[in-house]
Nucleic acid binder design. Structure first.
Lengths: 225, 225
DNA sequence: TTTAAAATATGATATTTGTCATGTTTTAAT
DNA sequence: ATTAAAACATGACAAATATCATATTTTAAA
């Protein structure tokens, strides 16, 4: 089993603020898991007894609305921590986490990581800063949902995925999503999402290679009204 | 000038996790301000050099969308801290804070409160827990914005204001908002907000006493489809 | 007190988006 | 390779919501 203190993934998240001693302790109690595409990592209402460090793959954080539709709130990728909020607040999970492709994660038990939250203010402050960033992004999503059209929101989703998660060598978005997932991100009906993407394709803003989407005109996509 | 260590307001926010010594130090450097209704406390893009502890009154946190409409993201009331996110992330403000009635606040300079964030893990963890709560609420708003009708969102806004901020002796909501502010909270056009409120009144779900709104049927309001 | 401005209200209409139906293509299992 | 299921696509229509126009009422200023 890998050792946390030698793992480069931690450089991308708050675990980088742990001391070498703390990392060695965490390393001794963590477990590594592989999660298959489509598998639910945790569900709304679950009691999480730890936090996940994503070593590879990508998952969605979503919530089921009363109308039966899933709304994706955030995408969590390699290098991110998963489940911090439940850890810190000691509440049941508010969101569901579902793997969008095969994942490799390390699970760190709650009682161990809590020790560090209580004793290492640098670590706690780092977690706090990440959560502040998440909150800012969530606030911005609220404004977009309330004030922008489906077309604008879809353009923004494409640009964000491009900028945050990058592209494959052939230029297609590295994150591969179904039309239904796009709809869940944008907050619209699946048919509407399909229509908007088709329209973008007609207008030459994007192209598709199989299921993969390639952004052809980032500037125009940013300017979509 | 009042002393923080004797101020009961701090029981409602993270400042309660400061030690007596820390409180005395904060007390010595804080300033008390009164803010008039309608006044902007800080604007999007402002560099905040401290955090506000709200002793009295209420304000809205909002963001101007590209279509020129304001979206309210959160209401901040007596007992809350204002501006923590900018403090922690060391970024410019993402939101505008505007007083909805006359307010009294204490301003604590950044460099002083940062000392405590770096040295008192109990305090940092408390701030973290509050931010985790804010993030959960923001996630829930995203889901509502994306998946619920204007009518449902308005019902929810009324119920939330009732439950979170309470009522006056005559039963009216203690938070007095204009129809435009209701629209900004719900994320809809002012006319639509007015129409929905008129409809609720017709259906006997609410009544109005001047500009004040009284919830007449909380149960039905919760069940609005 | 009078008066202008702002807030509230409501109708008519346009636009956006969702829903339902149906067909096509892709994927995965046998 | 065949076939069933899932994903993708598109048209037709319905429902929700925004926009524009125009009153009415309330508020605040002179």
């Amino acid at each position: 089993m890998g050792k946390c203190e030698q793992c480069i993934i931690r450089q991308f998240n708050s675990l980088k603020s742990l001391t070498k001693e703390e990392l060695i302790r965490i390393s001794g109690c963590k477990t590594t898991q592989t999660i298959k595409k489509g598998e639910v990592i945790f569900d709304e209402g679950d009691k999480l007894n730890g936090v996940y460090c994503v070593k590879d793959g990508i998952c969605k954080l979503s919530k089921l609305s009363e109308n039966g539709k899933d709304q994706i709130v955030k995408l969590v990728v390699k290098g991110d921590l998963l489940g911090q909020r439940s850890l810190v607040s000691d509440e049941r999970a508010n969101l569901q986490a579902t793997a969008l492709n095969d994942m490799e994660v390390c699970f760190i038990p709650k009682e161990e990581i809590i020790k560090d939250l209580k004793n290492n203010p640098t670590f706690t402050l780092d977690v706090l800063q990440h959560m502040a960033q998440d909150l800012k992004e969530a606030d911005n999503i609220i404004v977009n949902m309330a004030q922008k059209s489906v077309r604008q929101r879809m353009a923004e989703v494409l640009v964000n995925i491009h900028n945050s998660f990058g592209t494959n060598p052939d230029g297609t978005l590295s994150v591969l999503l179904s039309r239904e997932d796009f709809a869940s991100l944008v907050g619209t009906a699946t048919e509407s999402a399909i229509r908007v993407l088709s329209q973008f394709k007609k207008e030459g803003l994007i192209s598709t290679v199989g299921k993969h989407i390639k952004i052809e005109n980032l500037g125009e996509l940013n300017r979509v009204e």
